[in-house]
């Protein structure tokens, strides 16, 4: 029974990671994409936002496919941090 409870917590943790952090990561990747896409600003925003749903789907699938819950969290949070920094750096009025 104990292993069943543990299993359920693992599933819940993965769902949280996929739905919430996955969405944040997909948002960050799309923002980065919009900032570096070499087409007019409005078009880049539209194009990368339309792509964001595919990115989100890929991220969620990865979270559920990867071996351990810990790996899933690390694999989400580290890229999220790096990409957010990059976005901040590339933003007009950001660090660059």
């Amino acid at each position: 029974m104990k292993s069943m409870t543990r299993y359920r917590w693992m599933v819940a943790s993965r769902i949280l990671a996929a739905v919430v952090v996955g969405y944040a990561l997909a948002s960050a990747i799309s923002i980065l994409l919009a900032l570096i896409w070499p087409i007019p600003k409005a078009e880049a925003v539209l194009a990368s936002t339309m792509l964001s749903f595919a990115i989100y789907a890929a991220v969620v699938l990865w979270v559920f496919a990867t071996k351990s819950v810990l790996r899933a969290w690390i694999g989400l949070l580290i890229p999220l941090a790096i990409i957010s920094l990059l976005c901040w750096w590339l933003m007009p009025g950001g660090a660059a």
Binding site: V45, F53, Y56
Partner: peptide
């Protein structure tokens, strides 16, 4: 399914436009 999401592109994923614009 995908085109259904595109109808509400900026509502479902507002982050990009919010950050850039």
């Amino acid at each position: 399914t995908y085109s259904g999401l595109v109808f509400y592109t900026f509502q479902y994923m507002p982050a990009v436009k919010n950050v850039v614009y």
